[in-house]
Design a binder for these strands. Sequence first.
DNA 1: CAGCGACTAGAGCGATCGCTCTAGCCCGGT
DNA 2: ACCGGGCTAGAGCGATCGCTCTAGTCGCTG
Lengths: 200, 200
Amino acid sequence: MKTKAPHDLDTAGTRERIVRTASLLMQRQGYEGTGIKQISREAGATLGSVYHFFPGGKQELGTAAVRLGDEEFTELLRETLDAEPDPAKALLALTASLAEGLRDSDWLDGCPVTSAVVGTATSAPAIQQAAAEAFARWRGVVAAKLVTAGFADTDAEELAHTVIATLEGAELAAQVARSATPLEVAGRHLARLVASYRNG
Amino acid sequence: MKTKAPHDLDTAGTRERIVRTASLLMQRQGYEGTGIKQISREAGATLGSVYHFFPGGKQELGTAAVRLGDEEFTELLRETLDAEPDPAKALLALTASLAEGLRDSDWLDGCPVTSAVVGTATSAPAIQQAAAEAFARWRGVVAAKLVTAGFADTDAEELAHTVIATLEGAELAAQVARSATPLEVAGRHLARLVASYRNG
DNA sequence: CAGCGACTAGAGCGATCGCTCTAGCCCGGT
DNA sequence: ACCGGGCTAGAGCGATCGCTCTAGTCGCTG
């Protein structure tokens, strides 16, 4: 039962600023390529604050950053899928939205979870765990949408696997090629794949 | 016109050992997470040798490592696709092969290009360039296979985009989940997607 | 208003980073 | 026999890494 006094808000403010900055920087530079001092500097916080909020150090902060990316993409996923009854059309809207976001950042801001998880398998297992949970949650959201639209449970779960994997891969490909084409093509193919299960 | 004296072979041996070690380590730890000293130590070479062969430093070595990964996967791609006339069946064999390789390394060795390219957009543009070339070459191999199998040029090129993107994404998902399922499901869906263009 | 816990502030630790530099080994050619 | 260049060898540079530590500020509570 916490009160929402200004004190608490300020606290939450600094903590959140640190996490958001960490998420953004790790998205662009990866986990290993981002330093704690750079995060604290760009977040307008001090090193003391960072270790006050994240006594577990870099790994705990990285985990929080991945969780933030998880939450944000989960919300985008839910919004986009809810706005269109037909799952195939919704996927087209989703890839278009991702392509727009990527272009707007000059192809720098890819998937925050992907960026943070690469190369941390042995050095930061907690981050791997958080990334695994994120992917599983996203698959769950896609699968739920498909089930609601009348797909069989098994088909929905398998399609959700491929939808999320293809989105990850197409986002990376688009980033590297500095072109929206991989995402646009992936959207059309995913829509076609999903539609092929509608009557069969 | 170089002679193949033992002297030259030894030279090539050290250089190649360095590149192979760099490729393996960056595959597991990412570009930023791998140090030059660690590479030279594990390759059984000295720091002097590394900078003798790669005067451009870490970025040049990383670029060579990405090119090696490019060549190796290009070969695997060609071999697997050549062994089976039907592209859909060939894709199933390919995902099975990737899943096997991933499991054999205890889910540590994902795509070497992906690992190296994440987080290097601003810090090592030469690596981005090499990765873009790798993805383009792989798409070319897949597209050529599809054209040979009778697909229209446009369909073949678009499918190649999605095949490569989905393989990348599924490999990453399998690595994070420590499970072959994402790759297996992706293989079946890619086969289905490709087959859907056969008569349409 | 005294006291206390939450938070800020940043100097500085040992280790490691990418990289440079000098010294010397080894081997083929003349 | 001697030289010269390809390659090895590793000490050490300044910078940065993740992290610890002490000191101090702030605002709420009794």
